[in-house]
Amino acid sequence: MDSTTTHVAAGAKAQTRRKSSKPYLYLLPHLVIFTIFFLVPLVFGIYVSFTKWDLVRTPRFVGLQNYQTILFSNSTFHTQLVEGLRNTLWFVLISVPFCILVPLLLAVALNAKPKFGKFFQGLFYLPSLFSISAVVIVWTLIFNPNYGPLNSLFHLNQVWTGTQPWAWMTIVIVTIWWTIGGNMIIYQAALNGIPKDYYEAADIDGASSWEKFLHITLPSIRGQFLYTLVTTTIAQFNIYGQPLMMTNGGPNGSTSVLMMYIQQNAFGAGQSLAGLASAMAVVLGVCILIVSMIQFYFLRRDY
């Protein structure tokens, strides 16, 4: 790495002497797009969270009023923030372990090179290529109390998407079914990369399979494990489609995630409450930021 950088520097020196503005031309497309569609909206987004705005008229500065409303008042918007955030966190907490463990188990099983391994690998990866709305439509039929297989096969009378804790369970199952493919392949590649002689040495020492898994497999894939942990957590924080289409936020608002409230307030029927919604978005953003920073901190320490 070090030597490459110096090489690059040396190689490019002659070049820069001739034309110094040219490198910027290579950056220009990205920087222009980045500025207009990321940087400006980011700064603007933070600004409008301090204003009253309906997306049409000019934003009117109101100081900390939006934050006061959503954080400390007893208005509906405070309830929305607290419940939305709580539901989001709850979803992250229950779904992330499954989205890490299930693909890990699948990868370990596939790594044993069983029959039809390629077929299974393909099957488990497949759903991640479907759009969430198609996935939810197919699964709502499975959970449908009148036409679905669950109730009739097990002789139950359960309203899966309409009562807790089943509503969360359906959302988590759909999420696992939809998303684990990527993580599974990452683990598979990592498991493939563990040298065989590690295991042979352990065999000579008489280690059990469990001990081998614990002391050889897990430490060897730690890097990928942490990487998937961070990306999965961030992805689950942005949950929106599953509760919107499976449960419509119910029963009694218990699966309404913050993203749904932000969307409703800013782009719902009636006048847009873009200022308040922006403040909520900033709060959600800061939460994601903090959680991912904590995770990065552990990731860095472990390396």
Partner: peptide, 23 residues
Amino acid sequence: KTSIEKYLKDMQSTVQDKIDAQI
């Protein structure tokens, strides 16, 4: 799934607060 009191209180305050937040 929820109490009648809470439902009506929420309906009143949701509508009222949305009206108040408008420009």
